[in-house]
């Protein structure tokens, strides 16, 4: 038992370093960029310009319909064949941004579409402009609906970053693998890695819960 604890204590600094330098910044940056991509894709999809609608649908179709692992391989190993060579970091950010962005775009579209027509009509009768309707009526209500599924997208993204080892990035999982290989203690190491993911998940879930509470303040709770 003490052996196990000393192994954990010895490996923890390296694992935390990998978490703080790869797993968390990659997830955070890709998620922020994915939200921007999702907003643009949703605007294109729900706008009136047909070619932009098609482009948006094609994007979501492509990135939801292929595994993230394949996307990583195409970007990192495939693109150099046509002269586009990207670093592992840039490849990872592009792949996770576009992948998560496709899921988030679907989330946003469904949220906007779930807003009752009467809300839009009320904005019309008050003579709101399109922008005012979006800003004061659609966006705040859609965001409340989108929050739980977007939280899930983020959690999926964090766990998904464990795939970046295949394009040479040393994230928490890859570092755990290396230590497991040299100490011959795979069970202990992989459990430690799992625990780190669980801690990140727990923190994110807590933040998600708080955010939902704030965004639900105007909805009468069913158990009140």
């Amino acid at each position: 038992m003490t052996e196990l604890f000393s192994l954990w204590a010895e490996s923890l600094p390296q694992l935390l370093l990998a978490t703080l330098t790869v797993t968390i910044p990659l997830s955070a940056l890709a998620f922020v960029l994915a939200l921007i991509v999702a907003v643009i894709a949703t605007a294109m999809r729900m706008g009136r310009v047909k070619p932009l609608q098609w482009l948006s649908r094609f994007y979501v179709w492509l990135f939801r319909g292929t595994p993230i692992l394949v996307q990583l391989f195409i970007i990192f190993y495939g693109l150099p064949a046509i002269g586009i060579t990207l670093s592992a970091w840039v490849s990872a950010i592009i792949a996770f941004t576009l992948n998560t962005g496709a899921y988030a775009a679907e989330t946003l579209r469904a949220s906007v579409q779930s807003i009752p027509r009467g809300q839009i009509e009320a904005a019309k009768t008050l003579n709101y402009t399109g922008w005012q309707t979006l800003r004061h009526v659609i966006a705040p209500q859609a965001l409340r609906i989108a929050l739980p599924p977007l939280g899930n997208d983020l959690i999926d993204l964090v766990k998904g970053t464990s795939l970046v080892m295949v394009i040479t990035l040393a994230d928490v999982f890859q570092v755990g693998r290396q230590i497991a290989a040299t100490t011959f203690q795979p069970l202990a190491l992989y459990m430690e890695v799992a625990l780190i993911y669980l801690i990140i998940f727990t923190v994110l879930s807590w933040i998600q819960g708080r955010a939902e509470k704030v965004s639900n303040r105007y909805v009468r709770s069913t158990n009140a």
Binding site: Q119, H136, V137
Partner: peptide
């Protein structure tokens, strides 16, 4: 003109006073 709907269609994300005071400001 302004319409009063059968289903009210108040903005649920805004308080009563915001529902009523925001439109003339935005206009």
């Amino acid at each position: 003109s302004a319409m009063v709907f059968q289903g009210y269609n108040l903005f649920p994300n805004q308080t009563v006073v915001d529902n009523v005071s925001l439109p003339p400001v935005l206009n």
